[in-house]
């Protein structure tokens, strides 16, 4: 059989497009574990330059233009590389320079929140407003360790769901039949999630990272978490917040992660966000409480100041 040069050329030109289209498709046969579950395993980072809530300047627009995205990436690169002269006050104050910051990737969106459509956290209920007014976050006492934020005390990095921060936004996923482990580099804890319909823990058993149950919906891992502690709060929610998270492999090096939170005592409606997880390098141990000189210094400094 003879093939015209033209057809061959067309095939050659179209092949990469076809391949690209394939890698965007949800997995049906690829990305499977040996026991047949969708495969999310590996080292991942959810670092991103996309803000949780949409800045006013974008109005009703959900996506950045390619130019805006390029400009944002450039700004991020320049901003994090900025350093003052070595040893200067400016340099010391900007100590968290490029060495620390994880730039992350722009998700191409104007906000991580996609529902409601305005990209903002919904209005607080009257009860939620009252709680916010009574919050004593502004109390700057340093009488003992419990006066300091949980992160300074190295108890947890942040409550669930995890929204990316300045650095160490790394996760390791390992799967087994019936279980999924999500190891969080900060604070070196593992979410051990059973993939069955066993009931949640007794309602008096509250945990910093709650109590999670997962199941597969097609190629998507769906995890519901309850039993949160009242000593922590995601964006002002109560311990009764309900969290649904979804992980879907969309490429060799990407996972589409979405969460929906609802708490009628706090928000007038549920809201949802999407974050792209990218393949990351090796994870290392984030020991924090062990030899926490920072907290030592804060408390010792406060005592020294009182003696003045």
């Amino acid at each position: 059989m003879k093939m015209r040069f033209g057809s061959l050329l067309a095939i050659m030109l179209l092949m990469p497009l076809y391949a690209a289209a394939q890698s965007e498709k949800p997995a049906t046969t690829v990305w499977r574990t040996p026991w047949g579950d969708p495969d999310l395993q590996g080292s991942w980072s959810n670092a991103t330059t996309t803000p949780l809530q949409r800045p006013a300047k974008y109005g009703a627009r959900e996506f950045l233009t390619p130019e805006e995205r390029r400009e944002l990436d450039k700004e991020t690169a320049v901003g994090t590389d900025k350093r003052g002269p070595l040893g200067s006050d400016q340099d010391v104050n900007d100590a968290y320079n490029a060495f620390w910051w994880e730039r992350g990737w722009s998700d191409g969106r104007t906000s991580l929140i996609y529902d409601p459509a305005d990209g903002r956290i919904p209005a607080l209920t009257p009860e939620g407003q009252k709680r916010r007014r009574n919050r004593s976050d502004d109390d700057e006492s340093y009488n003992g360790p419990e006066d300091l934020p949980l992160y300074t005390r190295c108890v947890i990095r942040a409550p669930l769901p995890r929204v990316p921060t300045g650095y160490d936004n790394n996760y390791e996923i390992v799967q087994a039949p019936g279980y999924i482990a999500i190891f969080q580099e900060q604070m070196h804890e593992t979410r051990v999630i059973p993939l069955d319909s066993r009931p949640h823990l007794e309602s008096n058993v509250r945990q910093w990272l709650g109590d999670s149950r997962g199941h597969w919906e097609g190629n998507t891992l769906v995890v519901e978490t309850t039993n949160f502690s009242d000593q922590t709060s995601f964006e002002g929610a109560t311990k009764n917040m309900r969290l649904i998270e979804r992980w879907t492999r969309i490429a060799d090096d990407r996972i589409d992660y979405r969460f929906t939170v609802s708490d009628p005592a706090t928000w007038t409606r549920p809201w949802s966000a999407v974050i792209t997880w990218h393949k990351a390098g090796t994870l290392y141990e984030y020991a924090c409480h062990e030899d926490n000189y920072g907290l030592y210094g804060i408390l010792a400094g406060a005592r020294a100041q009182e003696k003045k």
Partner: peptide, 9 residues
Amino acid sequence: IIQGNNRIV
């Protein structure tokens, strides 16, 4: 122990 095919947590 969460034992996957390539790594274990």
